[in-house]
Design a protein around this nucleic acid. Structure first.
Length: 572
RNA sequence: GACCCUAUCGUCCAGCGGUUAGGACACUGCCCUUUCACGGCGGUAACCGGGGUUCGAAUCCCCGUAGGGUCGCCA
């Protein structure tokens, strides 16, 4: 114990020491001697002192080291926990006082004796530039989970200043088409996920950018043939019934995953029967596991970020990389996205396809933001985060390991946040587009009218598909009065409406201010509350019980339409 | 059947050995308001179960249970 140290270094907070602390062994303690009482000091003096550590230092072994691994590596304190080290346990009588401020405690989660040195980030080798890829199969739709996988890859590439590669896995020629490829390209473009390398068009033989192409697997057949040949010639693969099988290891494979941790994948019972898997079919076409690895290898992919559904198969991929004599890329298997009820999200489920969001008036930046928060979150707990900051904060270690359910309600809320903050022009554009999809042609009306109408909706809708129901009355010739509307138009209500109609007709200026005055005066003269005037009027003019601000809506509609609609309602 | 992953409010996340278990969505009470939203102030609501380690466990370990994934000449 370097007690002297504490005394000479006035102001410096004493000494670092190790103590046995709970089951996980050592804690680093930092003592402030000024605050120690005698009993505590006595205890402290019995501790082995250490140098070069600080509170919070990682003595690590990363937290993703799994217990299996730990058992193998000879647990440091179970085996070494002698009576001697026991005496360094922090006694309960002292602990509270230590915690009270005399001492700072840091308990590393896992400590291995041979790692009792501070991890030094500066001495790690210069990291290679990151290359990630998104490798979808053109099936005709882009799954929302696939979109998130693309997003995570993109975010990681942008975060690290690396390269985002788009590769089309169109090995199954029969069910691929340019339209199917376009669904992917359009989806990624819509989300704003630009790729640094990959196809420029949906044409497999068309132009692309990047020097590691082609970026369509259908154009890479020679590479696969050559690689199969290489394995064959080295006896690492063999022919069987016309197909080529890879000689798979008959023992568990260690998968080091940046998200899941170290996974030892043992053979299943079926694999025990036949461990060697086909890499090339009898018709000469290579299978997914093979092409995937060959392409990743040849394209210099450094990090494979993909859905957790690939985790088990990663053993095959690792074995293949090893057969080719190279280190496998770093893997990061991200959790899956499930339906609200926890079931797997399949093609048929609402919102499973990205096109759903493209077509229903969602803002891509909201979808991106929401997706980024599924399985990942920034430390500060914020939720509405601009893309730029997402890029800055995103990283692999923070990704969770458990699946997430897709919450449409929260997405709608998120979308509303973005819609509200949206520039007016963008709002008009998206509104007109979505309205048109709902069969409401805004082109029939003057631009000024359309804009004025939409201005009354700013900040009112969360997703644009709500707009047709909210503001459709602006763009129809007649309002449909449903049962609810008719029920509201009682004889008394009609009487009030009639009075309001006449007041409106007599108005010199027909605007929100004058309308409000007129309505309130009419209510006053009738001796009723404003609300009793408001509701019949709203129903008559819009057919609904709720909507944009009444006075503004009336102004936009204009005297002519308003009077016509009131008359129509009065005679309905 | 085997193998692998996972488990905190209804949902998404915080938490990484000592917290009155925190935030967001949703739900809900009040205020604001011509409606609906927005906004403001509140509320309901969670550590899957059982063992163990520890003075102390939501946090570490084990066993159950549940959910998900994978075992193709699909991708």
């Amino acid at each position: 114990m370097r007690n002297a140290n504490a005394e000479t270094d006035a102001g410096a907070h004493g000494v670092f020491a190790f103590a046995h602390h709970g089951r996980d062994g050592l804690a680093i303690l930092r003592f402030d001697f000024a605050a120690l009482d005698e009993e505590v000091e006595q205890f402290v003096n019995g501790l082995p002192s250490v140098g070069g550590f600080q509170i919070g230092d990682d003595l690590l072994f990363p937290k993703n080291v799994r217990e299996r691994h730990r058992k193998k590596t000879a647990s440091p304190f179970r085996s070494k926990q002698t009576a001697d080290s026991r005496t360094n346990s922090i006694p309960s009588s002292i602990c509270p006082r230590l915690m009270a401020g005399a001492c700072h405690v840091w308990t590393p989660r896992i400590i291995l004796p041979q790692h009792l040195s501070v991890a030094n980030p500066t001495n790690t080798a210069q990291p290679m530039s990151v290359r990630v890829r998104f490798a979808p199969s053109p099936t005709g739709y882009l799954h929302i989970g696939g979109a998130r996988t693309a997003l995570f890859n993109w975010l990681y590439a942008r975060h690290t200043g690396g390269t985002f590669v788009l590769r089309v896995e169109d090995t199954d020629a029969a069910r691929n088409s340019q339209e199917a490829v376009n669904v992917i390209l359009d989806g990624l473009r819509w989300l704003g996920l630009d790729w640094d390398e990959g196809p420029l068009t949906a044409d497999a033989t068309g132009p692309s950018k990047g020097d590691r192409g082609p970026y369509f697997q259908s154009q890479r057949k020679e590479n696969y043939a050559r690689r199969v040949e290489a394995l064959l010639s080295r006896g690492l693969a063999y022919e069987s019934e016309g197909a080529v099988r890879f000689k798979m290891a008959r023992e568990p494979v260690l998968i080091r995953d940046l998200v899941v941790g170290d996974v030892t994948r043992a053979l299943t019972d079926r694999e025990e029967q036949e461990p060697d898997f086909v890499i090339m079919r009898s018709d000469g076409s290579p299978v997914f596991h093979f092409v995937n690895v060959v392409d990743d290898l040849e394209m210099g992919i450094t990090h494979v970020i993909r859905g957790e559904d690939h985790l088990s198969n990663t053993a095959k991929h690792v074995a293949l990389f090893q057969a080719f004599g190279v280190e496998p890329p770093k893997y990061a298997h991200i959790p899956l996205i499930l339906n609200a009820d926890g079931s797997k999200m399949s093609k048929r489920d609402t919102g499973a396809a990205l096109t759903y969001y493209m077509e229903n008036g969602y803002a891509p930046e909201a979808v991106v933001n929401y997706l980024s928060l599924l399985g990942w979150s920034p430390k500060d707990g914020r939720e509405v985060i601009p893309l730029k900051e997402l890029v800055e904060m995103f990283d692999l270690p923070q990704i969770l390991r458990h699946n997430a359910r897709f919450d449409h309600e929260k997405l709608k809320w998120m979308n509303g946040e973005y819609v509200r903050a949206m520039p007016a022009d963008r709002f008009y554009e998206m509104a007109v587009h979505t309205l048109a999809r709902a069969g409401l042609d805004t082109n029939r009306f003057p631009t000024a009218y359309v804009k004025a109408a939409l201005d009354t909706c700013l900040g009112k809708v969360r997703i644009f598909s709500e707009l047709a129901g909210y503001a459709g009355f602006y763009f129809t010739d007649q309002v449909a009065l449903d049962a609810e509307a008719l029920a509201a138009l009682t004889p008394e209500a009609r009487e009030r409406l009639k009075r309001l109609r006449d007041a409106c007709a007599a108005l010199a200026e027909f605007n929100a201010v004058s309308l409000e005055t007129a309505l309130k005066e009419t209510a006053k003269s009738l001796g009723v509350k404003n609300g009793l005037m408001v509701h019949p009027c709203r129903f008559a003019c819009t057919g609904k019980g709720s909507g944009p601000s009444l006075y503004h809506l009336l102004e936009v509609l204009g005297r002519e339409r308003v009077l016509a609609r009131m008359d129509a309602a009065l005679s309905a």
